[in-house]
Amino acid sequence: MSLIDVRSLTLGYENRTVLRDLSFCVDEGDYLCIVGENGSGKSTLMKTLLGLQKPFGGEIIFGDGLKHTEIGYLPQQTVVQKDFPASVREIVLSGCQARCGLRPFYNREEKQLADRNMERMGIKEYSRRCYRDLSGGQQQRVLLARALCATRKILLLDEPVSGLDPMVTAEMYELIEGLNKEGITIIMISHDISAAVCYAGKILHIGKKTFFGTKEEYMASDIGKLFIMSEEGGANA
């Protein structure tokens, strides 16, 4: 049985359908990359997978006893109100909320986990700073650390490297690969097609045409060749 089985899913906003009749599955230990043009519905798909919005039709089946509390998530955008008082540490710790269930306070292990993930993302030294006062890239790292705290079986990332400098981007990919090797399933949305075909095992391409298969199949397919060419052309231009 697959970890996540998506069957003829149709999704969108209010009365606008964004994606129609989409089927794919994610097995335990997979590294799936979702690619597609801007506005093709990648983020919407991810939100639907997470249960943040209801699908119009079709099914999402969580197999292997996957629970929501085992999911880590990095949103593409987090709209945080101006002046929101929240320190980096408070935010990263809030990634552990699912672990503690109804227990009111975080225990030592969870605090250590938060510290370790802050170290991993190189944000330890400003753990007491206010989130709103950080740069965009620094904020992204905070949210990544929070997502890592929440992850136990599967990690969903919506454009994790956007806004990161090249050094951290490379480290980020290494880190995600490492997590994947430890057995954590990865679903990542990315515009960085060269990284996608380098690290991912499977590719889901959505848009006017849909493709789902291994990256080797994708690179051999017409839709894949065309997309890789256009993205790389775009990147070089």
Partner: peptide, 13 residues
């Protein structure tokens, strides 16, 4: 958690 980022909180259960 719910005040800071409701969708993240919901997503992680």
């Amino acid at each position: 958690a719910v005040t800071f980022d409701e969708s993240f909180a919901t997503a992680v259960g």
